[in-house]
Amino acid sequence: MYYATEYISPLGKITLACDGKGEKLVGLWLEGQKYHGGTLPEALREKNELPLFDLTKKWLDRYFDGQKPDLLELPLAPIGGEFRQEVWKILCEIPYGEVITYGSIAKKMAGRMNKETMSSQAVGGAVGHNPISIIIPCHRVVGANGSLTGYAGGINTKIKLLELEGVDMSALFIPKKGTAL
């Protein structure tokens, strides 16, 4: 069993989801986000009054207020296979206000898996299926050439999040075609 509540953010409605004990956050999806709830094996039940949801909402309030809350303040438990879990751990290491490329994550993953190389596309798939967006900062991942590609919440949302964090956007651009549009 999984519980859910809604949070109204400056970006619109956000769904928060936790495990049946109310102890671990398993999801955070923007309204209309690609793969919304896709990692959960069963439907969500609404339950608004949980301490974890209150804690998460306060974290999001601080984040949207331009503060830099630490993601370690929240008990996160994204649901996914071993490869995705490792990619999501790398996402958690990206500092607030900075970006990293899919290729850089692929190099880190290759090292962790004792391989010479790793596919950036495989990494992109794991990044795109991140079930706890914003908190696990998949919006901080960009293409090697500065392309703002691959955000399941949409390109405009990705731009707003990066701008909120004070990222220097001068070398970044919206692609003419691709997965971000």
Rank of each mutant, 00 (worst) to 15 (best):
M118W: 03
A122E: 01
P75D: 12
V141S: 10
R140P: 02
P95S: 15
S120I: 02
E98N: 11
A110N: 00
D54E: 11
A122M: 06
I136R: 05
F83M: 06
Q67A: 14
K108T: 06
P78D: 05
I94T: 12
G128N: 08
P78Y: 11
G128E: 05
I135N: 08
I105C: 04
M109R: 01
P78H: 12
M109W: 02
G97W: 06
A122S: 04
S104K: 09
F53H: 08
T101S: 14
S120C: 02
Y96R: 14
G124W: 02
E93D: 09
K58R: 14
E93T: 13
F53N: 06
S104M: 06
L76W: 05
N130K: 10
I134S: 08
M113F: 12
T56Q: 05
G125D: 06
M118H: 04
C92Q: 13
K89V: 07
I136Y: 01
E86V: 04
I100H: 08
K108N: 05
T117R: 02
Q67V: 10
D70P: 00
F53M: 11
G125S: 09
Q121W: 07
K89E: 08
G111A: 07
L72A: 09
R62D: 08
I134W: 08
G80A: 14
T101K: 09
Q85K: 14
G124F: 03
L55G: 00
K57C: 13
G124V: 06
Q121T: 10
D70Y: 06
I134T: 09
F53K: 11
D70V: 07
T117W: 02
S133D: 03
W88D: 02
L74W: 00
L55S: 01
A126C: 10
A122L: 06
K57G: 09
N130C: 15
G66N: 15
H139Q: 09
P137V: 15
L60H: 03
K89L: 11
G128Q: 10
T117C: 03
A77Q: 15
L72E: 00
F64V: 14
R62E: 09
A122Y: 01
I105F: 04
A77P: 07
C138I: 09
P131V: 15
G103T: 15
L76M: 08
E93G: 07
I134F: 10
K57M: 14
V123P: 02
A106H: 01
D54Y: 09
D70M: 08
Q121K: 13
P137R: 15
V141I: 15
L60K: 03
Y96M: 09
A126M: 06
L91N: 08
M109G: 01
T101P: 03
A126Y: 03
K107Y: 06
